[in-house]
C-alpha cells in the first residue's frame, strides 16, 4: 500500500509540463470578476473575432504581481469590479491610455478616465432593500435618512470595509465633506441591528428573518435572488423586501462600476482593445443586463426586465475618480467610528 502511494505520488510529479506556451491571436486577462459572470461575453467575443481569451482570476496582489513582472508581464488587460482597484492600478502607473472613438461614443464621460486609462462597462447602484411587511417608523428617501435615530436597531449591512461600502462612504465625503460623513457613519452604526457581517444577500436574508427591516445592498443581488431557481429560499428573501433608491430627487443614487483597463506594455495590445470595445458594444452591454442584472453604461440598451420594473432612477453623476480619491479617508472613518464593531448598546 505504502509503495503504491509512493508510486502514485512520483508519477504525479511528472504529470504535466512546467511551462506554458502562448499562441498568437489571443488576449490575456487578469480578472477581479468571477469568471462565470463574464464567460458568456468572452465566449461570444471569441466566436466573433477568433481571438482566444486566457483568463486568470485574482483578487489580492494583482498590482504587485504586475509590477514585479516588469516588461515580462504576460497580461494585456484587467477587468475589475469597484473603482478602487482600477484607481490603485492607475496610481501605480501600470495602465496604458487607450484612444478609441468607439469607447468614447459608448461610455458617458463621467464613467471613464479623462485620458482613457480605464473604462466603466456596467454600473451597479447601492440601494436599500426594505421589508415589505413591517412599517418603517421614519422616512427613507435619502442616505441621510439611514442615520436618522428613528431607524434605531433596524439596519443590516456587510462590513464597512468592504469596497462597496467604502465607495459609498467616499461618495458622501465627496459631496458633504469628511465631518458630515463621520457623523453619518456614527448615526448608521447606532442604527445597526447587528455587527456588520456576511455579504449583501445575507442582509436581505436578515430582513426575511426579522433581524432587521432595512438592508443595504447592491441592486443586482435582488435580481439574482429573485430568479434563483436552484436555491428557492433566496426567492423568499427577495419576496420579503422591496427596492428603494436613495437621493433620487437630489444628487442621485450612488453607483459603482465594473470596468476594464489596458496594461502598460501589453503584448497583444490590439486584441485587448478590441475586447474592451466589444464589451462596450451592444451585444455584450445587453448581456451585462440580462445575465447579471447590472445597468449597461451605453445609452439605449435595455437591462433585465425585472430590473427595468424597478424603474430607471437618477444616478449620482459624481466622477468616479472623485470617489476613488476619498477611499482612504473613508476607510479611516470606518476605523474611527468603530463601525464594524456594531451598535454600541
Amino acid at each position: 500500500m505504502r509503495y503504491a502511494l509512493a508510486l502514485c505520488l512520483t508519477t504525479s510529479l511528472f504529470m504535466q509540463p512546467f511551462t506554458q506556451a502562448f499562441a498568437s491571436g489571443e488576449v490575456n486577462l487578469y480578472s477581479y470578476r468571477q469568471p462565470f459572470l463574464i464567460e458568456p461575453m468572452l465566449e461570444s467575443f471569441t466566436q466573433k473575432t477568433g481571438i482566444e481569451v486566457n483568463i486568470s482570476f485574482v483578487d489580492k496582489g494583482m498590482a504587485e504581481k504586475i509590477r514585479a513582472a516588469g516588461n515580462n508581464n504576460p497580461a494585456d488587460a484587467v477587468l475589475t469590479v469597484d473603482i478602487g482597484r482600477l484607481d490603485a492600478l492607475r496610481k501605480a502607473g501600470l495602465l496604458e491610455p487607450v484612444q478609441s472613438s468607439i469607447l468614447e461614443d459608448a461610455i458617458p464621460s463621467h464613467l471613464r478616465h479623462p485620458e482613457g486609462l480605464w473604462f466603466a462597462l456596467s454600473t451597479r447602484a447601492r440601494i436599500a432593500l426594505v421589508s415589505r411587511d413591517r412599517w418603517l417608523p421614519g422616512p427613507l428617501k435619502t442616505l441621510a435618512d439611514l442615520a436618522d435615530p428613528a431607524h434605531r436597531g433596524k439596519i443590516c449591512t456587510r462590513s464597512g470595509k468592504h469596497p462597496y461600502n467604502v465607495a459609498l462612504i467616499a461618495s458622501i465625503i465627496a459631496h458633504e465633506g469628511e465631518e458630515a460623513a463621520e457623523r453619518w457613519l456614527a448615526g448608521v452604526r447606532d442604527n445597526l441591528a447587528r455587527k456588520p457581517q456576511g455579504n449583501d444577500r445575507a442582509q436581505a436574508k436578515g430582513v426575511y428573518e426579522g433581524v432587521c427591516d432595512i438592508a443595504i445592498s447592491n441592486h443586482y443581488y435582488m435580481g439574482k435572488m429573485a430568479t434563483n431557481e436552484e436555491k428557492p429560499e433566496q426567492k423568499r428573501w427577495a419576496q420579503a423586501v422591496e427596492v428603494r433608491f436613495f437621493d433620487v430627487d437630489d444628487r442621485g443614487n450612488h453607483v459603482n462600476i465594473s470596468g476594464a483597463a489596458l496594461l502598460k506594455g501589453a503584448k497583444n495590445r490590439d486584441e485587448a482593445i478590441a475586447l474592451i470595445e466589444f464589451l462596450a458594444g451592444d451585444e455584450a452591454q445587453s448581456q451585462y443586463g440580462t445575465v447579471n442584472f447590472e445597468y449597461p453604461v451605453k445609452e439605449g440598451i435595455a437591462t433585465h426586465p425585472l430590473v427595468e420594473s424597478w424603474g430607471r432612477f437618477k444616478a449620482d453623476s459624481l466622477p468616479l475618480a472623485e470617489i476613488a480619491r476619498h477611499r482612504e479617508t473613508a476607510t479611516r472613518l470606518v476605523d474611527k467610528t468603530r463601525f464594524d464593531s456594531g451598535p454600541s448598546r
Binding site: 468571477q34 486568470s56 485574482v58 483578487d59 489580492k60 494583482m62
Partner: peptide, 25 residues
C-alpha cells in the same frame, strides 16, 4: 491565487471562486 499561471486552476481556487461569494453549494 496570486502565483498561479494563466488558465491554471486548482481545487482550492475553484472552490474559492464560489465560496468567496458564499455560493458553497
Amino acid at each position: 491565487l496570486i502565483l498561479r499561471p494563466f488558465n491554471y486552476e486548482t481545487l482550492a481556487t475553484f472552490v474559492y471562486r464560489y465560496a468567496s461569494d458564499e455560493l458553497l453549494e
